[in-house]
């Protein structure tokens, strides 16, 4: 099977029911995507499929055939961090960092939207990504600093 991963075409010869999470981490060696619960509760394994945020532990890799998958490794352009990644560092939105990759992808979708976002919009948009370190305040600040 083939799909686009962070802008590049990849092909994999694995059973289609394998979790996308495992394919990314173990077959494609992209370990930025984390496993926190394996049942769609914590969002640590969030990736984008065709620009929409999903939990990669709930996706069968066969389901991404022909689609575009973006992981945290695909956010920065070469060595250049995105404004959102920069904002996460500046605002202290990453502490232990384990939720950060998934959080960034959920936040990425939010900051791409053209409408003006409120703090409540950001809370709703990030509600599928658990963080135990920050109390979310610094994360919300970081995302709001990047919205239009």
């Amino acid at each position: 099977m083939r799909f686009t991963l962070n802008g590049r075409t990849v092909s994999l010869d694995v059973v289609g029911t394998r979790r996308l999470l495992d394919a990314l981490r173990e077959d494609l060696h992209l370990t930025g995507t984390k496993e926190g619960c394996g049942e769609g509760e914590c969002g640590a394994c969030s990736v984008l499929i065709d620009g929409e945020v999903v939990d990669s532990c709930l996706i069968a890799v066969g389901q991404v055939e022909g689609r575009e998958v973006t992981t945290v490794e695909g956010l920065a352009d070469g060595g250049r961090l995105t404004a959102l990644q920069q904002a996460f560092i500046e605002h202290g939105a990453a502490q232990c960092g384990i939720c950060t990759p998934g959080m960034l992808l959920a936040a990425h979708v939010l900051v791409q939207q053209s409408r003006q976002l409120t703090a409540d919009d950001v809370r709703e948009g990030l509600a599928g990504n658990l963080c135990r370190c920050t109390g979310y305040t610094k994360i919300i600040d970081a995302v709001l600093s990047c919205t239009k």
Binding site: E73, I89, T100, P101
Partner: peptide, 19 residues
Amino acid sequence: VPRREGADKVTGRARYTDD
């Protein structure tokens, strides 16, 4: 100041045990 390992954590480069 920026967190020392901040860039590693926002790019997915930081290596946790299972990574």
